[in-house]
């Protein structure tokens, strides 16, 4: 769920976290943003919002998967560790969208 600057918002993006001012929620989680909402956010001096979708990752997917295999190299023969390795692999793949 990336945090996006209001100036970079595009209509159709979906809020991943409710937007609140103090204790009041202004827009709920799951709101699909349109032009009007976006310009109003700008008028209210909101700087960033959280948007649904994969976040930017510090390394490439290929690198992340290579690092994963390297981390597990001593324990990969143990069935429960192999199972954990597979789950983490699925998790990493999910972070890169598709």
């Amino acid at each position: 769920m990336p945090k996006i600057s209001v100036s970079d918002l595009k209509p159709g993006m979906v809020l991943a976290k409710p937007l609140a001012r103090g204790n009041m929620v202004i827009l709920g989680e799951g709101t699909v943003l349109n032009e009007a909402w976006i310009s109003r956010l700008d008028d209210m001096n909101v700087e960033h919002v959280y948007i649904d979708g994969p976040s930017e990752q510090p390394v490439s997917k290929e690198q992340a998967l290579r690092d994963l295999e390297a981390r597990f190299r001593n324990v990969i023969d143990m069935p429960h560790m192999r199972a954990l390795n597979n789950l983490v692999k699925n998790h990493i793949e999910s972070l890169y969208g598709r």
Partner: peptide
Amino acid sequence: DVLVRAKGLGFAGDHVVPELNS
């Protein structure tokens, strides 16, 4: 501890995942 190492978050002094105590 092992889950966090498996995910590769931060650095705890080494680069390998230890075995989970079964």
